[in-house]
Computed example of a mutant assay.
Amino acid sequence: MTPMSKPEDAPEAFQTAWNAHDMAAFGAMFHEDAAFVNRFGHYVRGVDEIVALHRPIHETIYRDSTLDNELIEVIAIADGAAILHFWSRLSTGPAHPAGPHQVDTLIQAVITRRNGTWRIQALENVTLTNPRTGEAVLRR
């Protein structure tokens, strides 16, 4: 796992675990009681559920996918707590039923420090789409 020694390390840690398709490293980024909302609005709670949501797609349609994350901002809200926003570009490969393509999302995450360790407490991922047509929009 890419260690998170400060909140702004989260986008890179998320990207590294995803790109390695390493579900142990992916799960290690989250507190045991974390909440996760994927880009389709599927809500799960707890690190085991977060990993269970991601493992099947990393074994199938996203097995050759990559993420490219870019930090937008870190908002400190208390000692040991911050809100992050970051862009995430998913590039799928031939394993995806729609073939290779890209999807941009905006991620909001709450990162907290417990016992000296920073982990994700809550994360929500929103697909960027045109609200009038539903067409996917890629950030520039």
Rank of each mutant, 00 (worst) to 15 (best):
V51H: 02
H96T: 06
V37S: 02
I77Y: 01
I77V: 15
A76W: 05
E32S: 11
G116S: 10
A35T: 15
V103L: 08
I72R: 11
V37L: 09
R45V: 15
V110Y: 08
F36P: 06
T112Q: 09
V44D: 01
G99H: 02
W87C: 10
A78V: 05
F30S: 07
R55Y: 06
H42T: 15
W87L: 09
R114A: 10
A35M: 15
E49Y: 08
H58R: 12
H54L: 05
I50C: 06
A109C: 12
L90G: 01
Y43F: 13
T105A: 10
R114I: 12
L90F: 07
H58Q: 12
P56I: 03
I75C: 11
L84F: 04
T66E: 07
V74T: 14
E32V: 14
E73Y: 00
P97Q: 03
H58S: 09
H54I: 07
L84N: 10
A35R: 15
T105P: 03
T66Y: 01
S88M: 09
Q108C: 14
F30Q: 08
G116N: 11
H58F: 03
N69M: 09
R55A: 10
I61V: 12
I72G: 11
E59W: 02
L53E: 07
Q108V: 13
V103W: 05
I107V: 11
L84K: 07
I75H: 07
I61C: 10
Y62I: 04
D33C: 05
G27Y: 06
E59N: 08
F86K: 10
A35P: 14
T60L: 08
T66L: 01
G116A: 07
A28C: 10
R114K: 12
N69T: 02
I83Q: 13
L71Y: 01
R63P: 07
I77G: 13
H85T: 14
D68A: 12
V37G: 05
V110Q: 15
A95F: 08
P56A: 02
E59P: 06
M29L: 12
T92K: 00
R63Q: 04
N38Y: 00
R89W: 05
I50L: 01
I61Q: 01
Q108M: 15
H101T: 04
V44R: 02
V37E: 03
Y43M: 13
F30R: 07
S88N: 12
T60S: 06
I75K: 11
T105N: 11
I77R: 12
Y43A: 14
